[in-house]
Amino acid sequence: MGQMKRYLPLAILGLLAILPLVGLSTYALHILIMVIMWSIVGMAWNLLGGYCGQVSFGHAAFFGVGAYTAGIIYAKGGASAWWGMPLSIVFVSVFAMVIGFICLRLRGPFFALATLAIGVILRVTAENLTSLTEGDLGIMIRERTWIEKTWYFYVVLTLAAITFYLVKRVIESRLGYYFVAIREDQDAAESLGINTTLYKTVALCLSAVFTGLAGAFYTNYMGYIDPKVVFALHDISIVTIMVVMIGGVATFWGPVIGSVIMVLLAEVIRSIPRLGAAHHTFFGILLIVIIIFLPNGIMGDMPKLKRMMRIGKPV
């Protein structure tokens, strides 16, 4: 069993890698790409929010900075938007350090709201700084690298595999224990000699970089970004939180499961003609239900779920 668990990620990766070979439709491939992209953002958020306990309401800020790095390099620098992926690592980590310097002195809900404000500041800035971002017009990538979605799928899959591996490595290392210690009791962690400010900043930067990479990928894949899309409060920041909350806070597979559920749910709701406009209502109700009944998400509350379904042995 232990062996199986160890190779489970590799098995899933292998399975996903051969999936395009069986001839999926473009639509199915698009859904898969979105699921994988969201699980990257979810895993990144989980590193900061789930393990380190710093709930961010503004991951759209990092997503957007990554996306705009790629977009601006293409639109102003004349280079391929793919350069945005390596460059976004630099930009987003510097940006996250600045944000961390300002916001990480706040705790709990106040940190959450400060990040929320940062997300909104960036959206408004991107809307108004037309000389750099083209404002509300957005940036369009005119030359698509590939017509087929298969290669985008492999790019995002590689990215997700790297993210999963690194997050797992970080969490299972000393750093991960520091993070959890900070989450459980910041003062106690501080008194044990953990430099909480430093490690919170590390968690924020790591989380931001993965989110930014997903953002840069988004620019390349979708070929169009504008401030309202990539800096969206509900459709990016809150959905990120939902992905993790539904899947399972502070679990490795939680964000993956959460993103499968969220992306499929969004697609299903959008495809129902009269309910399409109401998809936020469904998200909101789902969020409320999850918080009241499964506060630790599907993976986190697995024992509770099993008991409810009467699958597991009676306790």
Binding site: I241, T281, L287, P295, N296
Partner: peptide, 22 residues
């Protein structure tokens, strides 16, 4: 309700807000 993240209540109000706006 007991949970890992104490910010659950804040997230809950976000959910309420989303439903109302939508």
């Amino acid at each position: 309700v007991d949970s890992i993240l104490p910010e659950n209540q804040v997230i809950l109000t976000v959910g309420i807000g989303m439903v109302l706006a939508n």
